[in-house]
């Protein structure tokens, strides 16, 4: 019988992100519109997926994260939406400059830590860059806490420094599930209010805005 000391155990109190869904693609975007209906990409995970990613309209010369809006030139704006439910991912973009453009996207998705059981890792095969190879060449974000919060809730993390936080919000006005958040603000702007305030001890999900009825958050070690 092997002694316990003969077994190698790698242990951490902090989970490492597990990406369970990856997708890249492109769509012709009609510019000058107020935004087409989002394209729908089916996924078969069967549980709520939380997606993030990057997009470009100039073949990756310039990239944006999702829900980044940009005022450019004389008020022209880029805007984007990225959201997901338990069965679909929704992607859309708009550009007020006119004409058409090729909107390219690269997406990756997480499940909540409670939901990862039973999801085969083979779903993310295909790109060598995404494989988890734990080595000393890279720093892996350590997930301290994750969960769902309702507006008006304060989550205490007590890390003593401001952590990196990913937040998705669910709008009561759409069926798109959880999307990366937008229209946040420093200070009150047109009654929109601040959405998610992060400090060295806590995260406050404000209830000033009716834009979202719940949030999913992932807090990483600062």
């Amino acid at each position: 019988m092997a002694r316990l000391r003969d077994r190698f155990i790698f242990n951490s109190d902090y989970p490492i992100d597990k990406i369970v869904w990856l997708k890249e693609g492109q769509v012709q975007m009609q510019l000058g519109s107020t935004g087409d209906d989002p394209i729908e990409i089916a996924h078969d995970l069967g549980v709520q997926l939380y997606v993030n990613g990057v997009w470009t309209i100039d073949n990756w010369a310039t990239t944006y994260t999702f829900n980044a809006s940009r005022i450019d030139g004389q008020g022209y704006a880029y805007q984007s939406l990225l959201a997901a439910t338990a069965s679909k991912v929704y992607v859309s973009g708009q550009h007020a400059q006119g004409g058409t453009s090729t909107f390219k996207y690269r997406l990756w998705g997480f499940l909540s830590e409670d939901a990862t059981k039973g999801i085969p890792a083979k779903r993310t095969a295909g790109w060598s860059g995404n494989k988890l190879v734990l080595s000393t060449d890279h720093d892996y974000p350590m997930l301290c806490k994750e969960g769902v919060a309702t507006p008006g809730t304060t989550i205490t993390h007590a890390l003593g420094d401001i952590p990196y936080v990913d937040v998705w919000g669910r709008s009561p006005y759409t069926n798109y599930g959880y999307s990366t958040i937008s229209n946040d603000s420093f200070g009150q702007v047109y009654g929109m209010g601040e959405l998610v305030q992060i400090d060295s001890q806590k995260i406050l999900f404000r209830n000033d805005s009716t834009q979202y009825d719940s949030y999913y958050y992932r807090i990483y070690m600062p």
């Binding site: 990366t180 937008s182 946040d184 603000s185 702007v189 959405l195 998610v196 400090d199």
Partner: peptide
Amino acid sequence: YALSSPSFFL
């Protein structure tokens, strides 16, 4: 406090 949004208002 801090904001984590990639775009926001001042």
